[in-house]
Simulated scan of single mutants.
Amino acid sequence: MTERIYRSPQPFHWEGRGERGETAIMLIHGFTGSPSEFRRFGYVLNDFGYTVNGVCLPGHGTKPEDMLGLQWPDWYGHVLAEYHKIKDRAYRRIVAVGHSMGGLLALKLGAEQPLDGVVSLASPIYLRDRKIWLAYPLQYVKKYVHKKPSQLTTRFEEIIAYDRSPLTCVVSLRGLMRHVAKLLPQVTAPLLVGQGEKDRTVLPASASFVYERAGSSSKRLIWYPHSSHAILMDVERDAVYNDVLAFVQEVDCSLSKPNNDRSRMPALERR
């Protein structure tokens, strides 16, 4: 790897090294976002030797018009295709890490495909904006809803995301939220759920819902009291990186042990 580029919407795949390189980590960004959300953390994971694959969802990373006509099955279909590409390369372990809508897609993948670990960060089951239900009727009279002016500080400047959301896609996102909520008991891989308590997009109760409903016998819920929805880039991002890395290392270690006793990672909620 040569020059490190943080502000880029392009997908990325960086091979790891040694035994850790046999663990492939899928990084799935959120709604109207791009792989730029994960590039900084991707470098961290790759520095530790892991193979990382930053997914770019269809219609994302270019312009909002490219999202028009797309629905959540299109986004999940792309994630599934990327998963099979990784699986075909015969990595020993696959871990899916998703932020926001990407977390929902990671959970759905974990419910339907063999994964060795799932990480859900700020994934929505309940959205804070109660006007979200208006998206359904409004989609017939307007194409986009504009986001509020950003209050984010300079540490977020590397994130590339759209300034408006296609309303048909917002409606589809709501459908994905309901769909994944029903699938959670089928998620049995080791699970890490992370949630910022200052999230102004997703109600923190979403994290409790995912944690409680998931079928995983090994699961953890970690709260970040000073973090917003952009949990990967906020003031506690180093703590988020360390917690996810520790989770990956623990999954990696447990799968290397004889008899593969996953029950050694207990259920835990941490504040």
Rank of each mutant, 00 (worst) to 15 (best):
Thr2Cys: 09
Pro11Gly: 01
Pro11Glu: 02
Trp14Tyr: 05
Ala24Gln: 00
Ile25Ala: 01
Thr32Arg: 02
Phe38Glu: 07
Arg39Tyr: 04
Phe41Gln: 11
Gly42Thr: 06
Leu45Arg: 07
Phe48Arg: 14
Gly49Ile: 01
Thr51Pro: 14
Gly54Glu: 08
Gly54Tyr: 05
Pro64Asn: 03
Gln71Gly: 13
Trp72Gln: 08
Asp74Gln: 11
Trp75Gln: 11
Ala81Lys: 12
Glu82Tyr: 09
Asp88Gln: 12
Arg93Lys: 12
Val95Ser: 08
Ala106Leu: 03
Leu107Trp: 02
Leu109Arg: 05
Glu112Tyr: 03
Gln113Val: 08
Leu115Asp: 03
Ala122Asp: 01
Ile125Cys: 02
Leu127Gln: 04
Lys131His: 15
Lys142Thr: 07
Val145Tyr: 08
Lys148Ile: 15
Thr153Asp: 14
Arg155Thr: 10
Glu157Met: 10
Ile160Arg: 02
Pro166Gln: 02
Val170Ala: 09
Val170Pro: 04
Val171Lys: 00
Val171Asn: 01
Lys182Asp: 00
Pro185Thr: 11
Pro185Cys: 10
Pro185His: 11
Leu191Gly: 08
Gly194Trp: 05
Gly194Tyr: 06
Gln195Trp: 02
Asp199His: 04
Arg200Thr: 13
Thr201Leu: 07
Pro204Ser: 04
Tyr211His: 10
Ala214Cys: 12
Ser218Leu: 13
Ser218Asp: 12
Arg220His: 14
Trp223Gly: 03
Tyr224Ile: 03
Pro225Arg: 01
His229Leu: 02
Val235Arg: 13
Val235Lys: 12
Gln249Cys: 12
Val251Thr: 02
Asp252Arg: 05
Pro258Tyr: 05
Arg262Ser: 13
Glu269Gln: 09
Arg271Trp: 14
